[in-house]
Design a protein around this nucleic acid. Structure first.
Lengths: 141, 141
DNA sequence: CTTGTAGTTTAGAAAGATTCTCAGTAAGAC
DNA sequence: GTCTTACTGAGAATCTTTCTAAACTACAAG
């Protein structure tokens, strides 16, 4: 991820290294607030703006993604195409592999039918519902 | 939509009638701000909280939907399952029919594979890219 | 190594979106 | 018509995100 930053002409700073280290491999899709608080102990002088700037730069460079699921934005270090399941109860966000090729083809045909000439850059699927654990607790309790 | 409100035990007020009249059939997916400004001339005393309350009540009753696409929330009077194409350039949001049954089945299998036991309540697809008009202008200009 | 420059960081202000509080008001039931 | 309960209005409060201006520093060039 850091190498990618360099490749796009961005400077490698200590703050960026810390942010990248913090989100790389993090599957919890943290908010800017959460990252800021995690980084504060080792980087007490870091500004909120730096967190946003860095995450914005990473997204713009295609090295991470920004998710808008309601409430605060969430950051996803996985730049490869994939989708998300969001639990209504506990808020957990689970990564999903992309749908099959057939599904993708069907989706693109749907776009072409309703919005002719629309050029798709990114496809984002969100499945909202109840995760297995919350479902079990709701049934039990 | 108003009848639906009644059916869920919510009161029918003049403000709600005005808001429902304003969004029903509106395909532009307005923000709370936009609705508030449209309603102000005929309803100068209406509060912002009332706009949010009403839209929240409509969503909770399943009579409309709230979209989180980045920036302010947008409101969609179409409660039937459908998806959205968002233009990166002009921001226009186009409704899309739901994908085919096969695509839907493939998507659900993908959820079951990666998040076993997750119970899907709502599926939301967002296609980001460039709409036909902006694509044309980018090529020409 | 020294220097120049352009991109970064910081702190705080500012802007924007949404929710909350609470007193006053009105819908709908009886 | 009265009563209860839910709704509305106004503004404050909260939360998220962006902006500003000055100080700083990574990196390339000399």
């Amino acid at each position: 991820m850091l190498e990618g930053l360099k490749a796009t002409g961005l400077k490698r700073t200590a703050q960026r290294e810390a942010i990248v280290r913090e989100i790389a491999g993090d599957l919890t899709h943290p908010t800017a607030q959460e990252l800021y608080e995690r980084l504060r102990p080792s980087f007490p002088s870091m500004s909120f703006a730096t967190v946003y700037n860095t995450l914005g730069a990473l997204s713009a460079a295609g090295l991470s993604r920004t998710l808008h699921l309601g409430g605060a934005a969430r950051f996803d270090p996985n730049a490869a195409p994939h989708h998300h399941a969001v639990c209504d109860v506990c808020g957990a966000i689970t990564d999903l592999p992309t749908a099959s090729l057939e599904a993708d083809g069907a989706a693109r045909r749907a776009v072409e039918g309703a919005a002719p000439g629309f050029s798709v850059r990114e496809v984002e699927h969100v499945y909202r519902g109840t995760c297995a654990r919350c479902e079990r607790e709701a049934t039990a309790g």
